[in-house]
Design a protein around this nucleic acid. Structure first.
Lengths: 233, 233
DNA sequence: ACCACAAACGAACTCTGTTCGTTAATCGTG
DNA sequence: CACGATTAACGAACAGAGTTCGTTTGTGGT
């Protein structure tokens, strides 16, 4: 338990504030979102509840509701905070398959930088009208510009995104989640598990990263083959 | 609110039971899991809490804890209930790439039959020692038997599984989740969205299904190309 | 100068999963 | 057959979550 006196960095005005509007601006939507993301990073999802965020800001929980409609909207806001950082500049210069590759890596890396958020966002998807559509627009434009038919680009983007999100989820789990231990009823699986470990021990690569790389390479190779077979227009 | 008198089908012994061990077996782990899954299907995740399951069984919430350690274990149990139904028989007769295709479809279909569970399982992954390892064993054995090197099969399985889970998550969302509406700042995206809708309107296929099919085909095509280039041993 | 509004407090409310003590029926053992 | 241990139910509580509402006070527009 934490007593009322000991506040953390953000609670600068040390003496307790009484009821009524404060003199200076204490809260803002942006500040709440950033504090939420920081607490998620530092303490995980469970440590970033409304009460925890409020306490970190030296404020009562109910005050947050003057800036954010509720927890769902708060999480959606944090999501945009992260997805805004996904770099899409590769679509300017590189060929579509290379740009898709770079974009997928940037996409996954943005969320992998904040592991607890992945499971949070997987559950509650984006709300309409968000800035995420701008990213989609960029990718759609590039793919169609490269020669993909308009009616197919979104399907490709969604497929790739599904893989990225699934891989991010996988990457947020423990590396030894599949460890067969001393199990003897799954010989092929156990052998495969240890052979993989031996292979990855050389480079120090995480299993989840290896799976992401392999799957992404396979999917893009398949798309390139399909693209090559496309009737030219 | 529901009064104590009106019970649902499972609460057959209508009169209220007092304290003490009951005459016949009232609960069992299996019964609790199945009731939980049924409530999830009927009412969604929020309608399948411990109290709701207990009430459906004509029992007090605390009684459940004599058969299940807590909510997490209950969810894990329901997950196994579903994943046990994934058909892996394709690996017996078909070539590896065809079997992988069938398995992926069966995998996704098993969870898609219970949409609310997908987000629940995405958050809390499997516990060690589960029967899921048996399924992995089957797939690993088939891939290695077909000629894939041992140290690569698990990476392939995990990559494919990530895509399947990501697609299942996507499929559990609303079809019009990406609808750009009357937005004008994302022309390429908006055009792609409507072109896709026009294409799918013909077959009645769901966007999520189309993305799954396309991504799966691309990934398996990529894997086949890689397999063909493998040094023979 | 006044009045509406904004933004804080603080106390409550409704949920949730969970724990614990009590009680009664059954099972194993002398 | 009797008796103690175990099992499995009830019922009342608890802690912690998100949220709501009334109150209070400072700010900004007419």
């Amino acid at each position: 338990m934490r007593k009322n006196g000991e506040k953390t960095q953000d609670a600068r005005g040390a003496q307790r504030r009484g009821a009524g509007r404060p003199r200076g601006r204490v809260l803002s939507r942006q500040l709440i979102l950033e504090t939420g993301l920081r607490l998620i990073d530092e303490r995980g999802e469970a440590g970033a509840g409304m009460r925890a965020i409020a306490q970190e800001l030296g404020v009562r929980p109910s005050s947050l509701y003057n800036h954010v409609s509720g927890r769902d909207e708060l999480i959606a806001g944090i999501r945009e905070l992260i997805s805004d950082r996904i770099d899409t500049s590769a679509f300017d210069a590189e060929p579509w398959h290379q740009a898709l590759h770079d974009w997928a890596h940037a996409y996954r890396a943005a969320f992998a930088a904040h592991p607890p958020t992945i499971t949070m966002f997987a559950v509650a998807p984006l709300e309409p009208g968000s800035r995420t559509a701008l990213m989609y627009d960029r990718v759609c434009e590039a793919l169609h510009g490269a020669g993909w038919p308009r009616e197919r680009v979104l399907t490709i983007v969604v497929a790739l995104e599904s893989f990225i999100l699934g891989s991010a989820l996988d990457s947020s789990a423990a590396d030894d989640m599949l460890d067969p231990g001393s199990r003897i009823d799954t010989p092929a699986f156990t052998a495969a598990y240890h052979e993989r470990a031996r292979l990855l021990a050389g480079t120090g690569e995480r299993p989840a990263d290896a799976a992401f790389q392999a799957g992404l390479a396979a999917m893009i190779a398949g798309l390139r083959a399909e693209f090559a077979a496309l009737p030219r227009g």
